[in-house]
C-alpha cells in the first residue's frame, strides 16, 4: 500500500482507514455546511492534475488542512465528539506531509496556482463557514488522493 504522487512516494498509509475515519463523521460535518453552491476543492483545483504537479499540490493542501483547518476547528471536533476520527486523519496527514517534504526540491507553478484557487475560495467565506466546508470536503480530497494510491 503506497501513494505515488509523481516523483514522491509515501508508504505506510492505509487510505481505506482514512476513508472510514471520515465516513463516521461525514454526516455530522456536511450538515454544518449548507452552502451547496460553493465548493473549495472544485474541478479547476483537482481535475487533470499531472503526476509532476500532484506531489506539490497534495503537499500544499495537506499542510493547509493541518495548519489552518484542523488547528482552528479542533474546538468543534471536541464538541461533536469526533476526536478519534479527527486524530486518525490529522496524524496520517502529518505523516504524509513529512514524507513529501523530503523529496520536494523546487516549486511547481501550476500546482501552486491550483492551491491558490482553493485558498482564495476559502478566504472569501466567513471563517467558521470555511472551516466546516473544508472539513466536510475531506472525502473529495481523499477521493482525489485515491487516484495516486496503489494497493
Amino acid at each position: 500500500q503506497e501513494f505515488q504522487f509523481g516523483p514522491c512516494r509515501v508508504e505506510g498509509v492505509a487510505l481505506p482507514r482514512l476513508l472510514e475515519a471520515f465516513r463516521t463523521v461525514k454526516e455530522t460535518m456536511q450538515i454544518q455546511d449548507n452552502i451547496t453552491s460553493v465548493r473549495l476543492l472544485q474541478r479547476e483545483v483537482l481535475q487533470d492534475v499531472s503526476d509532476a504537479e500532484s506531489c506539490y499540490l497534495v503537499h500544499d493542501l495537506l499542510k493547509f488542512y493541518l495548519s489552518t483547518v484542523f488547528k482552528n476547528y479542533s474546538h468543534k471536533i471536541a464538541e461533536f465528539k469526533m476526536l478519534p476520527s479527527f486524530s486518525t486523519l490529522a496524524n496520517n496527514f502529518l505523516f504524509i506531509v513529512s514524507k513529501l517534504q523530503l523529496s520536494m526540491s523546487r516549486l511547481n507553478d501550476s500546482a501552486h496556482r491550483r492551491f491558490l484557487l482553493f485558498k482564495s475560495t476559502f478566504k472569501q467565506l466567513e471563517m467558521e463557514t470555511a472551516l466546516s466546508k473544508a472539513f466536510g470536503e475531506v472525502d473529495i480530497l481523499l477521493t482525489w488522493m485515491g487516484k495516486f494510491y496503489r494497493l
Binding site: L19, K26, E27, Q30, I31, N34, T36, G136, D139, T143
Partner: peptide, 10 residues
Amino acid sequence: KVTERFNPLR
C-alpha cells in the same frame, strides 16, 4: 428538504 452530499463511486 435537501439530501446529503452524494458521490456515486463512494
